[in-house]
Structures are given as structure tokens and as C-alpha cells.
Write a protein that binds this DNA or RNA. Structure first.
Lengths: 203, 203
DNA sequence: TTGTAAAATAAACACTGTTCATTAAATTTG
DNA sequence: CAAATTTAATGAACAGTGTTTATTTTACAA
């Protein structure tokens, strides 16, 4: 009877099991450092079994890509409580930084790692990603209604802000700040963030 | 007699041959996509021979890292002809972008790829890298003498500028702009650059 | 209980970076 | 010049990677 239904349920359960295991391993070691065999071993199945549920490693990447954005959105969401939109925008920037350095492996998957990165048309993996970007744009728009950012389109300005935040985080995560003395690195990031906020305030 | 000298000369010649071959292959396919065996095949030696001249693949990475920065510095250098320092700064930003999209594989090695990235103390690989950053700082300093960027330290501001430029370039190179319609991507980058320049002008 | 459909796997393929014992070449010594 | 020694190059292997396929095991239906 309900055998077909149960089979489908078991199928998604197995997919979840794989994903959950991959999730934890990626968080610890990073995407490139985790092999299909590692995941298989963790769930006590053979490597070939993984391929009955995911076409290839990229397919797992896509799933975790969406997952990471969900976690990001949850991480950032508390800022909605902030009334002043400019303050909220700045708080979002701070949350973005904190997220990047708290969950560097997620950040990698979301913004740095090279992978097919489809989302041409069907998208689906970028639904959560687009939500995060849309959230930023909506805050920028709200700032505009209060008289900030004169003559600037929220669309363009959002990308400008994202670019700065991402640049700072990815340069740091990918160890391109080593020419700055170790004890100054944290400070220079914070100061650069202050400078950028100042630039936005007087825009 | 001069046999020792000749041997040393041959040693650096061999190193150069390997590097030259690796250089071309990396430029075509990217660092991760080129194997030691590929390089060995290209120079018609066995893979093990590579290891007589380079400790490991990272060692080759370091060499090419310096090489890429030399090419970058040469690419940017024409802007010294520009008298006005603010104009020169903006021209450097434009050159930076052009370089990133003209030589994406170099840009990868320089700023994105994950690799030991030492330079703790001895440095040497970052000599050219530091030169590029120093060049930027000197331009910012010159802008300050002309009254721009009041109350901002060139050190911090340089990193702020670098962060924005790198963020924009790396988001684009790593395909994180796919949620923007294909025909708008180029425009949004140019517009964001304009916005950032405007922000700097009124700083 | 037998036949069939589905799920899981062992084994292989073609790669990867890297090491090491062995062979080949060049140089020094007797 | 021949023998001994140092140096250079390599073949073969190790342990790993993503992925595919033929085979076996399991689960269900008749």
C-alpha cells in the first residue's frame, strides 16, 4: 500500500543523512578537504551509495550552498529590530563580518569556492542567496526614503557595499593580509569598516 | 674548473624551464587544473624530476605568485604619467579591474587561491606584492597633500580601496553575480566603481 | 516460495601529489 | 684511458581523489 510513500520518505531521509554528515564535515574541514569516501565512511555506507542520491560532488555543494545561506539569513535576521535604517545597514555589515569569521567554511562555499555555480534560469540554490541580497537592497531603499544616498540607485549601491564587505572578508580569510603585522590586522579591518561607514554617511 | 658554475647555471636554467612551462599552463587552465605530470610532460621530463628543483607544488605556486605581481606592476605602471594624484588613483582602480578580467588566472594566484601563503618574516614572495600595495599607499598619501581624504590615514584608506576593488573583481570572477541578468553585470560593476570614486571624491 | 524490482556494494578506471630505490650520465680520481 | 664516485633522471609505487559499472544483496509481489 503505502510502500511507495515510505520508499520516497526513506529516499529523502537518506539524502538528509548524507547532507547532514557532509554538512558537519565541511564545517570542520572545508569543502575541498572532504572526500566522498569521508562522507560514506561517516554514515557507514559505501562511496558508490552516495551517487544513488547525488549526481556528483557539485550536487552536494549546491545543497550546502543553500543551507549556508539559510544559516546566514538566520544569523543576520535579529537586526530587523533596529529602527533606524542606516543603523540597521551598518549592523548588517557587522553581522556579515562576524559571520564570515565565525563560519569561514560556510563563507567559502557561499562566496569564494569555484564551482559550476549555475542558477541560470531555474536557480533554486540561489533562492536564499537572492533573499539575502534583496534584504540588503530593501534596507538601502529604506535609507533613501529618509534622505540618504541621494542620486544613487539602491541596486548599484547595494552591490558597492557588498563588494567592499566581501573584499575585506575574503582578503582576510584567504590570508592576503599577512604583510600587515599580526597584531594590526584586526584593527585595520575595523578601521576600514569605519571609513566605509563614514563614506556612506556622507553620501 | 668552471664546472661548478656551469652546474649551477644549468640548475637555474632547468628551474626556469619548469617555471616557464608551469607559467603558460597555469595561465591557460589555472593552478588547480594543472598537475605536476602535466608540467613534466610539457618539458619532456619525468614527474619526479620536478621534485629535484621544487620542494612541492606550493613552491611553484610561490614562484608564480611573485611572477604574477611583476606582470601586474608592469601593467599598472603607465599611470605614473598622470599628474593629478586623484586621477592617478582612479586610473589605478581601472587598471586593477582590467588586469583581473584580462588575466583571471594570475588574479586567482595573487588574491584568491588558498595556499600556505607564508611571508611571515622572511617574505620574498610578497616583495613585489608589497610594492604594489606600497604604490597604492603612496598615491593616497599624495592625494592627502592636496587636501583630499581629510582625517583618514593612508594606510587604512588604502586597504579600504583595495577591499572594494578586490570584492568586486572576485565576486565577478567566482561567478557570484549570476543573479544579475547577464547583460547588466558589466554595467553594474562600472556603476559601482563610479559610486565608489564619488564616495572617495567627497571624503 | 519463487520471480522481479530496488538498493547497496566491491572493484575498477583514470586521475592527483609525492617518495624512493634503481638506473643512467657526468665528473673526478688513480 | 679505465675505474670509482658523485650527480641527475626516472620507473614504480603509495595513498589518496571523483566517478562508473557489473555484481550481489535486500525487499517486495505474485
Amino acid at each position: 500500500m503505502g510502500v511507495k510513500e515510505r520508499k520516497e520518505r526513506q529516499k529523502v531521509e537518506m539524502k538528509d543523512l548524507i547532507l547532514q554528515s557532509a554538512h558537519q564535515l565541511f564545517l570542520d574541514r572545508g569543502f575541498e578537504e572532504v572526500s566522498i569516501r569521508n562522507i560514506a565512511e561517516a554514515i557507514e555506507y559505501s562511496p558508490a551509495t552516495i551517487y544513488l542520491y547525488f549526481k556528483d560532488k557539485d550536487e552536494i555543494f549546491y545543497a550546502l550552498h543553500g543551507e549556508a545561506f539559510k544559516i546566514f539569513n538566520a544569523y543576520v535576521s535579529p537586526i530587523v529590530a533596529i529602527k533606524n535604517p542606516l543603523e540597521r545597514l551598518f549592523a548588517m555589515g557587522e553581522k556579515y563580518m562576524q559571520f564570515a569569521f565565525t563560519y569561514p567554511k560556510y563563507y567559502d562555499i557561499m562566496f569564494i569556492i569555484e564551482s559550476p555555480m549555475r542558477c541560470d534560469e531555474n536557480s533554486d540554490e540561489w533562492k536564499e542567496g537572492g533573499a539575502a541580497l534583496g534584504f540588503l537592497e530593501s534596507i538601502v531603499e529604506e535609507c533613501k526614503t529618509l534622505g540618504h544616498f541621494k542620486n544613487q540607485s539602491p541596486h548599484t549601491l547595494s552591490f558597492t557595499i557588498w563588494s567592499f564587505m566581501h573584499g575585506m572578508c575574503s582578503l582576510s580569510l584567504r590570508e592576503r593580509m599577512k604583510h600587515y603585522p599580526e597584531n594590526e590586522r584586526e584593527e585595520i579591518k575595523l578601521k576600514a569598516f569605519e571609513v566605509f561607514k563614514h563614506m556612506l554617511t556622507n553620501l
